[in-house]
Amino acid sequence: MSSKRERRWWTEEEDQILKAGVESQSKQIGEVNSLMSWNEIAAMLPRRTNKDCRKRWYKVRSDFIKGTWSREEDRKLQQAVQQHGLKWALVSRDVESRNADQCAKRWQHGLRPDLKHTPWQPEEDAKLLQAMDKHGNKWKKIATLDLPNRSSHDIRNRQVLKQLF
């Protein structure tokens, strides 16, 4: 049995309940920020988790940028991580233009200082193939155990390219 949940599209009614919950909390704390209790909001929406609610809210908000990161955003992200560590809600607040999930992904797949961005070497390709024999296509596990200086996205993309040729 799969642990994956069935995808459910958000209804207009759910969006209205979400909006009301966010507005109610933002009145209490003065703004929409990292102090929001997404658990309380999720309690008003059966079959929605706190993460579902947080992601939906930040997806429908118009004040966050989508797409390519600017150099200035990267600089802000690096400074915020230096100051707050991997506390993504706090980091996002300092970056201002991106939500917590965007910040986490940008850091983990692009800006982490230990990541290699150089061309792949034959010995890395050999390690990747061995790791795939052992772990299958579990890219995060391969990145953690076998190729720690490559992001899981780089590993997945490299394997896709190798399959094409």
Rank of each mutant, 00 (worst) to 15 (best):
E23D: 10
L18W: 03
Q28I: 13
S26C: 02
S34F: 14
S26K: 06
N33K: 00
R48D: 08
K27M: 13
L35A: 14
R48F: 09
L35Q: 14
M44F: 09
E40P: 09
W38S: 02
L18K: 02
G21N: 04
A20E: 07
L45W: 01
N39P: 09
N39E: 12
R48G: 05
I41D: 01
M36I: 15
E40Q: 15
A20L: 07
V32E: 00
S34A: 15
W38P: 01
P46H: 05
S37V: 05
E40F: 13
L18H: 04
Q28K: 12
E40K: 15
V22P: 07
P46T: 08
V32W: 02
A42P: 00
L18I: 00
G21L: 03
I41V: 14
V22E: 06
S26G: 02
K19Y: 09
E23N: 07
R48N: 09
R48E: 07
I29C: 07
N33G: 10
L45C: 07
E31T: 12
R48A: 06
A43Y: 12
W38C: 07
E31I: 10
A43P: 04
I29M: 08
S37C: 08
Q28N: 08
V32K: 03
L45P: 04
A42L: 09
K27Q: 14
R47K: 15
S26W: 00
I41H: 01
Q25S: 01
V22M: 12
A20F: 00
P46G: 09
Q25N: 02
I29V: 08
V32R: 01
I29R: 07
S26Y: 05
G30Y: 02
A20D: 09
A42N: 06
W38K: 00
S26N: 00
A20G: 05
Q28C: 11
L45H: 03
M36H: 09
K27A: 13
I29E: 03
M36E: 02
K19A: 11
P46C: 06
A42H: 05
S34Y: 15
Q28S: 12
L35N: 14
K19S: 11
E40R: 15
I29P: 02
S26F: 04
N39V: 12
A20T: 03
E31N: 13
K27W: 10
S24R: 14
P46K: 07
M36N: 06
M44L: 15
W38H: 06
Q25M: 07
V22C: 10
A42T: 03
L35E: 14
G30K: 01
S26E: 07
Q25C: 04
E23A: 06
S34H: 15
W38D: 05
